[in-house]
Write a protein that binds this DNA or RNA. Sequence first.
DNA 1: CACGTATTGTGAAACGTTTCATTTTGCGAT
DNA 2: ATCGCAAAATGAAACGTTTCACAATACGTG
Lengths: 344, 344
Amino acid sequence: MVESTNIKEVARLAGVSAGTVSNVLNHPHRVRETTRTRVHQAITQLGYVRNDTARQLRTGSSRQIAVVVLNVTNPFFTDVVHGVEIAAEEHGVAVVVCNSGSDPDRERRHLSLLEEQRIRGVLITPVNDEHMTRLHQLAARGIPVVLVDQSAGWTNRCSVTVDDVQGGRLAAQHLLERGHRHLAFAGGPLGVPQVADRHRGFTDAACGARIAMAHTATLSIASGREAAAELAALPADERPTAVFCANDLLALGMLQGVMQRGLRVPQDVAIVGYDDIEFAAAATVPLSSVRQPREQLGRTAAELLLDEIVSGAAHKHRQVLFQPELIARASTDPGSGMVASGPR
Amino acid sequence: MVESTNIKEVARLAGVSAGTVSNVLNHPHRVRETTRTRVHQAITQLGYVRNDTARQLRTGSSRQIAVVVLNVTNPFFTDVVHGVEIAAEEHGVAVVVCNSGSDPDRERRHLSLLEEQRIRGVLITPVNDEHMTRLHQLAARGIPVVLVDQSAGWTNRCSVTVDDVQGGRLAAQHLLERGHRHLAFAGGPLGVPQVADRHRGFTDAACGARIAMAHTATLSIASGREAAAELAALPADERPTAVFCANDLLALGMLQGVMQRGLRVPQDVAIVGYDDIEFAAAATVPLSSVRQPREQLGRTAAELLLDEIVSGAAHKHRQVLFQPELIARASTDPGSGMVASGPR
DNA sequence: CACGTATTGTGAAACGTTTCATTTTGCGAT
DNA sequence: ATCGCAAAATGAAACGTTTCACAATACGTG
């Protein structure tokens, strides 16, 4: 390990005090131009790099915000992260991405680490409500927290959500309009609030229809394939004619699974996904899906957080609720068959 | 902002010195059990959280490694990141994900920030060779750097790569075997080493064939659609019968674009992608693709980095080269038509 | 009970900044 | 020349840890 040069060495080389070097870096106008250039020369000559650790210790706050997501490999979340980055960049703060992988334990560890690092603020989609008090604690200790895509039990703080119950309703309505009377919901675990809400909205709006439940362990393509096997194994007259999947990964797996078993989509079974990730439109059969404003979700959340950071006590907490939108494509349209949808 | 309690307050409440509290936290065996529990009580009673900033300043090193990727929204990179996380978790170090977005300027800013933070190590897929000297500088200053998915001009350090030239060759061979004699390469910018290598391998192995070039501005679905428009506009006898796309996003866009314009895949135009992201198999026409060991790439890179971190001078630099593999699916198989491929 | 030794605990220094009260410098006006 | 005052520079304290040489206990043994 090479010991790096510090501010004092720069000061010595430039023939000034450490305080002056610090001023050159942080308040250039306070120092005369001639010395300023002298200091800059010393800096480049020594290859000096400011030690942010010491700076943070002294100033007491970092210049980073964190975003904790459920699953980095889910395009929904990477789009959210992208939105966060856009907003953060405008404010000159850096974003660190943490992945809980839907594991409460990893989520807890991340939060502890972030608190130890005195992170400036946290955006988080919690795994479940297990750590809600922990999050309130964080906020009480001066680390603002904004909930993303979840709002249960968080009325007195900022959150940015999409109406999942309404999303479930949209899916049900769409399928009922298409004439389906025997439906299925695929998703899980129901402990995940988003899944529970989508399920609730779906069953509410489809109260007249028959609804089967395909419980999945995760919200992944693999789980979708498994659920498809279950579904395809049913005798034709017992099989739902349409499935609503709790997210697009599940729906893509479902699509692959049922087609592999010789069922036609949408003729034998129609499929509606959720999120409308970019790959939904490019699927084997372009996927109908409940669209969420993914990037805007992230951007708005970041803006709320940044406002809370800069405004401090003057900040007013807000709960932003976006409305989802159903995008109909071939996977629910008997007429369109195998014709691809156009660009979104 | 709430002023947090520090180690001294804990010490006072527990009736010991600050050093003892520190020992309880870092070397528990050095302190008697009775005092240890007393200190722990004080910690929980005050809700004390260690200030990692001060700890890092004193110890001189952080417990985090960074991974800088070209595009967080590209599933290829999220899979790589996932591999990194797995390896890092085994070693108890945290991962921070930085997104350069293929922008050299953002890449530079990230590197500066990471250096200021005295990050423990960096995994990076550089945008191009613009900052190679900067990376060597970082390494010379005691921040190990491992190159991921790129190795040009990096012979004396660790890197983990997949043979892109060979990948390009595989694609060409595959298409030649299928009888295609009029090919196209879609990708860009050629300043991106991966693109250049794939292009080179492709043209090398297809030297007998006619090869058109569809230059794209980015490696995204949108760019793929644009390239498709270009291609579809050609008269049928001037149009290549097969396209090799520099990555799967491009290929998915290409697929959407050509189908939307009434061309059939693979009958009118066959398509080969690159990366074999999970969504390639789920595409409108399941996509043939050159598979890279995405997760293993990340995991291996992280392991090399961690070895360099713990072994220090004893570490031997290694350049790991993986071989790609062509996965044939319907997008290049005239026989299979629209039949979906099975699970991978 | 005194001794020797291993086990615990202490206290101050050090890490590299920023901050701010204070001192020094520069310079135009007298 | 000298004064006055703004501008510039200084130097030491402080941020919250960890470390380490040293002091103070505890405890088994003779």
